[in-house]
């Protein structure tokens, strides 16, 4: 039991938090702009490297420097949207998907050009785990990630239900034509979608980089489970995407727990495959997701 909590449950919740934060952006962009944003993983990588660059200047806890990462991802997302995605908006959305696929490569090669392609650690050294109730040993980082994600989920829920901008975003995600004729400012909604999506991508990238290390493929490797999470939660349902992220993260990590006998249930080298299998299952049986998202 203790082993399960220490080595499986908390890491699983951490991975789940990372997926959840990334999937919110993917789900909102898919719901509002109607395309699968393939550069979202690399946006996360960009955020992680932005924070890393800031730590070189200010030697404080990297989590305090997340705003720098956010500034970088938000400005890049708005720039890319203005110059690369918006000109294609009148075409079928698949052109924007292709464009975002290219942007993913552009982000990555820029990162490699500026910071090199080696693995880099944000914080050197080992930090002792926190001991709870004398039995559970939890890494401080895992706790930080889970708590931060919980706070963000509450704030996001408040934003989407109580503010005017948030409500317009949900309206556009539900029915863009109706929202437009009702006089909602679509351009503003699109801008806020990018700002929130990119800001959360920076947080997710920070935790992903702190959890392992920063490398140029960091975000790309997380893209598939995040897509699965966004579909699981229902496209255009940010809170659903959060739940989806946690479910996918738990499923991936807990699949290598020795549930039956002494062997891992599924070899850890096939962890990524779990997300894919869940995604395929959803596409066959319930493409609108668990929480009745839009089926585009």
């Amino acid at each position: 039991m203790t082993e399960f909590v220490n080595f499986y449950l908390f890491p699983a919740l951490t991975i789940g938090s990372i997926y959840a934060l990334g999937a919110v952006g993917i789900s909102m962009i898919f719901g509002i702009l109607r395309f699968a944003h393939f550069a979202h993983g690399d946006l996360m990588t960009l955020g992680a490297y932005g924070i890393m660059a800031a730590t070189a200047l200010m030697p404080v806890n990297p989590l305090l420097l997340i705003p720098f990462g956010m500034a970088l991802t938000i400005s890049s997302a708005l720039f890319v949207d203005r110059f690369f995605y918006r000109p294609l908006r009148d075409l079928p959305t698949i052109y924007t998907v292709i464009s975002s696929f290219g942007i993913a490569l552009v982000f990555r090669s820029l990162i490699q050009l500026v910071w090199g392609s080696e693995n880099q650690v944000l914080v050197a050294g080992v930090r002792p785990p926190l001991v709870l109730f004398d039995t559970f040993r939890v890494s401080v980082l895992h706790l930080q990630a889970i708590v931060t994600t919980a706070i963000i989920a509450v704030l996001l829920h408040y934003f989407l239900t109580a503010t005017k901008t948030g409500r317009s975003m949900r309206a556009v995600a539900d029915d863009p034509e109706l929202a437009e004729v009702s006089g909602l400012d679509t351009a503003k909604v699109v801008r806020w979608t990018w700002i929130i999506g990119a800001a959360l991508a920076a947080v997710a990238g920070a935790f992903a980089a702190l959890n392992t290390s920063a490398h140029p493929n960091l975000g790309w490797n997380l893209l598939l489970p995040m897509f699965a999470a966004a579909i699981l939660g229902g496209i255009g349902k940010p809170m659903g995407a959060m739940a989806g992220g946690f479910i996918i993260g738990m499923a991936e990590e807990l699949s290598s727990y020795h549930w039956i006998g002494d062997e891992a249930l599924i070899s850890p080298s096939y962890k990524t495959a779990i997300a894919f299998v869940i995604m395929i299952g959803l596409l066959i049986f319930r493409p609108q997701g668990l929480f009745k998202g839009r089926l585009l």
Binding site: A36, I94, I280, L295
Partner: peptide
């Protein structure tokens, strides 16, 4: 489904 889903699934199969 919409072509975006095929894109995601094809990336997935390549990864697997």
């Amino acid at each position: 489904l919409k072509s975006d889903y095929l894109a995601m699934a094809s990336i997935g199969i390549a990864e697997i």
